[in-house]
Design a protein around this nucleic acid. Sequence first.
DNA 1: AGAATCCCGACTATCTCGATAGGGTATTAG
DNA 2: CTAATACCCTATCGAGATAGTCGGGATTCT
Lengths: 154, 154
Amino acid sequence: MKLTSRGDYATRIIMELSTVEGPYPVSVHDLAARTGISMKYLEQIMLRLRSAQIVRSERGVHGGYILSRRPERLSVGEVIRAMDGPLAPSPCASQTAHVPCPAYRCPSEQGCVLRGLWLDVRNAIAGVLDETTFAELAERQRAVAGASGGRYMI
Amino acid sequence: MKLTSRGDYATRIIMELSTVEGPYPVSVHDLAARTGISMKYLEQIMLRLRSAQIVRSERGVHGGYILSRRPERLSVGEVIRAMDGPLAPSPCASQTAHVPCPAYRCPSEQGCVLRGLWLDVRNAIAGVLDETTFAELAERQRAVAGASGGRYMI
DNA sequence: AGAATCCCGACTATCTCGATAGGGTATTAG
DNA sequence: CTAATACCCTATCGAGATAGTCGGGATTCT
């Protein structure tokens, strides 16, 4: 049930973008500096985020990436799905990209006990990730930063 | 957040073993026939399950594998962990195999907002998988099999 | 024009997954 | 005792994903 580094990185990046007032565009260069991710790899991640319409880009000298929605309306689940695919542990339990099991193994989805279980797991995961917005994460960030008199900590 | 086929298979296998009265040993040959998994691959899975002490084996002519505990005391979580590792999406959020993030990326686990989130996800997953026993699954299986006048369906 | 920036495809190691293969060891039936 | 039945163990392999890296092209601003 692992998260890939892409998913983890993307979440960090979007957190970073969520704390930008403005909004004004942030360049890959700046994002790399702020997160410690290599520029080239970060660039790839940004392309995926853009094709998922989570960010939009502006080209040219003062270009960069901007959230395409306000952090209040952007959930962690969307970002993870854009990077790592469906949240469900098995395709047969996915709500956003459902694929049934091969028929010879699972003759009926309705009657499949395991699918019911994977569905419970999927719902548990989605319950957390789809209900957590980046506004909420930014809020938590401010709380811990304030409490610890804190330096940058992502 | 994917389950591997090993995890899926192992769950099916243990479900199968949970419905064996006795208990008496079931051979790899029989398990393969009942689940449709190739014998050789199934054998490997059984070795892992044995080294995790989820099943024990008996060698010789009437040998095979037996659950080492009653299905009431065996959770799906244990089986998944034995096959696919920790349930947590990130090692820093694992309770059974905790590994901190590199310090340059995450100076303090206490203050890490993302770790908090991954921990929520981990707890959501574990809440389902550690609370579901194979006795419970076998019960559900009987319920749907009865309701549909049912044939073998795993 | 030139600098900063995004855009895009190719490339490369490394790993894991899913499986197959082949032989070794214990137990028991006959 | 021996053959059959089973588990035990290690090695190997192809395909695909992961985690990056690299080089250059296109766009925009100064």
